[in-house]
Design a protein around this nucleic acid. Structure first.
Lengths: 270, 270
DNA sequence: TAGTGGTCTAGACCACTTA
DNA sequence: AAGTGGTCTAGACCACTAG
């Protein structure tokens, strides 16, 4: 069992420490595709957890034990363990050991990446519905830190796939004649462009929240759905490097075209 | 500037290599709260990015440069850089350098942790509305891999806070007389208990998805909202270590009580 | 070829837990 | 005291990129 699991010809590159002529190694084996040792270890241990060989609550072999089994140095082993830790598969307790964790729904993590993947293809059209300079409404002024009478740029975009709208974006941007924000915003014609900070660089931070809302009449019209339909509302606020808000808006997207999906546990493809 | 940035008395513990009597170090300083060097570096560099000192697209100092500035070994510096990389703040390109990344909405990551945090307090009540063994409907049979005529356990729970319902859970569990799944399920009386794999250990994987849906009449009644109200629907499928599904169900929770929230960029508290 | 990131070593010392 | 995880070193060698 010991070194057997590295029989696939794991390492490849190998550092020769100070004077270690006697180091026996099963390297020299061919290793196209070259997989780093720590990745290899992560895969092996993940597979054991996924297969139930190590069960939730079980204590894993100690670091020195794993070092012996995989024939790596402590640092390399720890790197692998750290990865397992922040994937949520195991926990470590100083002085006690490393233990397999059970699943916990609260740790599920959803990303918007899928939104991009879903519509990255060229058939996605971005249609600019509105672009105007407007006096900031009460709520807009609050969110953008404007005074009464200040102006903001209002943008509305519709995203279509094969002619069918699936997302609508409304945004208020601080109007600052010095910065060409507006102009650069108007150039955006791709979903990627919009998602890329809704307008290139210059933003330091974004605060995001997702709600489930009923479509209002106007947005429902744009999305060609009945008013009241449940959709996702992704609200965003962008700040510059001084912490001042420069943009506030919402994406509305249809839930039947896009869901947040994820997986929990030791299985996802390495 | 060189070692200045570690003037706060960063390190504390310090490894003495082979024979390095002459190593000068600003340690020995008091260091309660002890912050590891790599964490320290992550904080410093993050702060510089957040402040706009390093701008998106900029190339960071080389590793050897940083090693000199922070007076650490390459491994320690790399550990810090790796953390920055998987926080999405920088990218590394072998042979070219390390660069600051701009924000990208597609990378936003939302977790359900907030759901737990929000209602971890004791005032949350879990009310078991239904618990029965039922013949598997068509859709249930498909999701659980059952044949026609097989049975499933149906559970429905309502979660209340100060007497106000905010979440409803419906679940079908494979009925297996050998396993005490049902019994253990019935013991659960806390939100944490439900989220913890909806019933203790024994699950290897979970597949989750979130949709925005309109409340149906029945669920609307439980949640005391008008039918049609937009809510989140978190659907889950749990599998055992053989990959066989053992549980399928949905959480419905009110969006006005709970949103998915996150932040993008270099700012979140270390 | 020079410079960059990427991996790895063979230890060291520390802090913590358990007995 | 023995065993565990946690951090760190001072290099080494590799792979890649660019002038």
């Amino acid at each position: 069992m010991q070194a057997g699991s590295s029989g696939g010809g794991s390492r490849g590159p190998q550092a020769l420490g100070s004077g270690d002529g006697g180091r026996v190694r099963d390297s020299k084996t061919k290793h196209r595709t070259y997989e780093p040792a720590y990745v290899h270890i992560v895969r092996i241990v993940s597979a054991r957890i996924a297969a139930g060989e190590y069960r939730p609550g079980d204590q894993l072999p100690s670091e020195s034990g794993f070092c012996a089994e995989f024939d790596v140095s402590p640092m390399t082993l720890r790197r692998a363990v750290n990865i397992l830790v922040d994937r949520g598969l195991v926990t470590t307790a100083q002085g006690r050991g490393t233990f397999v964790r059970g699943l916990y729904l609260g740790e599920a993590s959803f990303t918007l990446q899928q939104l991009t993947d879903r519509w990255r293809d060229a058939s996605t059209e971005v249609r600019l519905l509105t672009a105007s300079i407007v006096p900031a409404r009460e709520d807009v002024a609050v969110m953008l830190g404007l005074g009464p009478g200040d102006s903001a740029v209002f943008l509305r975009r519709l995203f279509l796939n094969d002619g069918h709208p699936f997302m609508c974006h409304s945004e208020f941007v601080v109007y600052d004649p010095r910065r060409p924000l507006v102009e650069s915003q108007l150039q955006i014609t791709s979903l990627d462009g919009v998602l890329k900070s809704a307008g290139g660089e210059g933003f330091a931070r974004a605060r995001l929240s997702i709600r489930a809302v009923n479509l209002d009449d106007e947005t429902a019209g744009y999305l060609e759905r009945p008013a009241g339909t449940a959709v996702f509302c992704l609200e965003h606020t962008f700040e510059d490097f001084d912490g001042a808000p420069v943009s506030w808006g919402q994406f509305y997207f249809l839930s039947d075209e896009f869901q947040l999906v994820t997986t929990l546990g030791a299985d996802w493809p390495e």
